[in-house]
């Protein structure tokens, strides 16, 4: 014994709508206009002073560093902006990580073209002594706080070119590195995993 099928509402057509309505169509219903903006404004006017009061009470109770720092870390680790550049073949995987298939933007990772808008430098490729100046300049142009990920074997330790006359054996000779990603080149999943490891580091950041 199944329940009877739901009854469609009776056809009540507006007086002027008959001419363009198809046969068998559902009737058009006029929804009342909801004053959404007004409601939200009123709620915000009530909410903001209450939130301020609660935050002040929390800071007074816990101390400033225990409230501001986690909030700051939470915002920082969820909006990591890596520098959009490429040194070698790892840059192909770096670019793939932002394509539709891997879509790193769902983690808030958005590559920026200017170092002054970035807080994360992903060194994706072989660093030569010739380009070392430029890498250091770009790193110094990034605002604090900033992090560095060495992506791939070349950036980690020189890779197959470790003993070559023109290759830096690991980018940690030039800038402080937070996370090393192995692989030649690492897959986009590995790069995303490295960034998530970095987010764990930022979560525990104290100063």
């Amino acid at each position: 014994m199944s329940a009877p099928p739901p009854q469609l509402p009776a056809k009540v057509a507006p007086a002027n709508a008959e001419s363009y309505r198809l046969e068998g169509d559902l009737p058009m219903v006029d929804h009342p206009a909801v004053p959404f903006v007004e409601i939200e404004t009123v709620r915000a006017q009530e909410f903001i002073p209450a939130a301020k009061e609660a935050l002040s009470a929390l800071i007074a109770e816990q101390g400033q560093s225990k409230v501001i720092r986690p909030t700051f870390n939470w915002a920082g680790r969820n909006s990591l902006f890596p520098l959009h550049w490429g040194l070698a073949c790892c840059a192909i995987e770096f670019a793939s990580a932002f394509s539709a298939r891997w879509d790193s933007e769902r983690f808030g990772i958005v590559p920026r073209s200017s170092p002054q808008q970035c807080d994360l430098m992903i060194v994706n490729g072989t660093v030569t002594w010739k380009v070392a100046h430029k890498l250091i300049t770009l790193y110094e142009q990034m605002p604090e706080p900033k992090w560095v990920i060495a992506m791939g074997n070349c950036a980690t330790g020189g890779g197959p070119f470790r003993t070559a006359y023109s290759v830096v054996p690991g980018v940690d000779k030039l800038v402080p590195v937070d996370v090393y990603i192995a692989g030649c080149p690492p897959r986009p999943e590995a790069m995303i995993d490295g960034i998530l490891r970095l987010e764990d580091l930022i979560r525990e950041r104290k100063e």
Partner: peptide, 10 residues
């Protein structure tokens, strides 16, 4: 060819 540890001069 140098080992990376001998690279100070480079």
């Amino acid at each position: 060819l140098h080992e990376p540890e001998e690279l100070e001069v480079k």
